[in-house]
Each structure stands twice: as C-alpha cells, then as structure tokens.
C-alpha cells in the first residue's frame, strides 16, 4: 500500500455541519490556505477535519502535540542502525511529501521553539527545511496544514504567538446547538431523541456555569459517552454521574448542583 493510501480516511465519518463550515473549508483548501480550528475541547474539531479529509479524498496525518515534543519529532531524525544511520521522516515531513492534510492537534501544548518549524510551510514559500539532512523540501501541491487550538486554556503561558496565529485562516467552533447536538447523540449512540434531549439539557446547565467555577462546560464528547452508557443499559442517572459530572469537576457545590440537575431531568 502506498503511503498515500495508508493515510486515507476510508469510511465516511459521521459529521453534521454546524453552519457552512464544509463549504468554507473547501474554499480554504482550494487555495491551500493553512487552517486553524478553535473551540472548546470535545466540540467536534477533530471529527470535522477527519470528515473534510474524507470529503476531499486526501490522506490525513494527525499529530497530538505535547510538552516534550521537539522539532525533530515533527520533522524527522537520523536513526542509529547497526551499520550506520538512517534518516526517518517525521509526520510533518511525510505529509508535505505525499500531499496530505497534516493536523497538529492542540499545538499550544508543544514548546514554542517547536511551533516555529511550521512557519515556512505556512506562507508563500511552502517549504520545509530539513537542516540535519541538508534538504529543503518543497511541499506537495496538495499538502495542507491544519492546527487545532483551544483558547479555553486559562493561561497566557499557553497561548500562541501572534506571528504563528497570523499565518492561519480560522474556524471558530463551539458546542453544536441543541437540535444538532440531539441529532448527533442519537446517531452516534443509537439512543432515542427524547433521551438525547435530556442529556443536552444537562449539558446546557453545566455550560451556563462556565466562568463560575467551571473552566469548561460538558463537551459533546462526554455527552456521547453518557449516551453510549445509557445505550449499554446503564441508568441515565448513573450514566450522567459517571460521564458528565465526575469528570469535569471536584468543586462540591458544582457537583451537588449538577447531580441535582441530573436527578431533576431524569426522574
């Protein structure tokens, strides 16, 4: 199997459009503009990119960024072998070579010196210098860079530099509206719409508490978890406790209130 095929998204991911982001993304891709997707955790950013890769029939290479990640983890490095060394492309380099969509999830997590290596790929140059190898890689015509970024991080230490931000077009994601979220829960988990609607009500209560003791509301992802538990036979109250309340906070007042909300919503 060629590299190209290996990274293709084979089956259509389930994705429900929030507004007109699909068309906008297609336009951005047509112009090969780098894309940044912003929004709270678990609201559908990764799913959206996966869906777009499928729709555009491009390979997708996803990198989950973390604090210990260095530039070489993205670009590539020499490996020691019994009879010498061998160069191994990093995921970013691979994507640029084969013309994939490269999705750097949670870039803010990476150290700042790491983030800088993407700069030449994101302007008109569309190149990636492989310093160690002494190669200047020209990105494949189909290559596109996408980063995700959750501005909910309540820390200025984890913010992107202006010089990074200003290289991207951006999509602002938020939790889907109630009707859409109900449809998503129903179709992801197979529970009925009435139960899905109740779950969305619990989510709404938590989201209203953001900034009042909660850093983030309950994500769509967690709602999907709760729905899956219910589908599997867990009682709604237990499912909510397990998937919605406990994961998000240890604040007693907020827990009490959310538990009460769950018990008021699912009698």
């Amino acid at each position: 199997m060629s590299d190209n095929e290996q990274f293709k998204v084979r089956e259509e991911p389930f994705y429900r459009q929030q507004r007109n982001e699909v068309a906008l993304y297609e336009a951005a891709y047509a112009a090969r503009l780098p894309v940044m997707v912003k929004g709270p955790t678990g609201c559908g950013k990764s799913r959206f990119i996966e869906y777009m890769a499928w729709k555009l029939d491009r390979p997708l290479i996803t990198v989950a960024c973390n604090e210990d990640m260095t530039a070489s983890d993205l670009v590539g490095r020499y490996l020691l072998e019994a009879n010498g060394t061998r160069w191994l492309d990093g995921p970013l380099t691979t994507a640029a070579r084969i013309g994939a969509i490269c999705y750097l999830d949670e870039v803010v997590e990476a150290r700042q010196d790491t983030t800088v290596v993407i700069h030449p790929l994101t302007d008109h140059r569309r190149t990636l210098p492989l310093d160690k190898k002494g190669e200047l890689l020209r990105a494949h015509a189909d290559f596109q860079l996408v980063i995700s970024y959750n501005p909910g991080y309540q820390s200025l230490m984890k913010d992107l530099k202006q010089s990074t931000k200003q290289r991207f077009t951006a999509f602002d994601f938020d939790y889907p509206n109630a009707a859409l979220e109900i449809a998503i829960l129903a179709s992801e988990s197979g529970i009925d719409e009435a139960t899905a609607a109740r779950l969305v009500d619990v989510g709404a209560a938590a989201r209203r508490l953001k900034g009042h003791g909660l850093d983030e509301g309950i994500s769509t992802r967690l709602l999907v978890y709760a729905a899956a538990l219910i589908k599997g036979g867990v009682t709604p109250v237990d499912a909510c406790r397990m998937a919605l309340v406990r994961p998000i906070t240890d604040d007693r007042d907020i827990r009490d209130t959310l538990e009460h909300a769950v018990e008021s919503i699912f009698v």
């Binding site: 209560a205 938590a206 209203r208 508490l209 009042h212 003791g213 007042d253 907020i254 209130t257 959310l258 009460h260 909300a261 008021s264």
Partner: peptide, 8 residues
C-alpha cells in the same frame, strides 16, 4: 444556590 439558579 447561586450555582443552582445559574446552571439550571
């Protein structure tokens, strides 16, 4: 109670 009023 403030959280109750706000959240629910």
């Amino acid at each position: 109670l403030d959280i109750y009023l706000r959240g629910l």
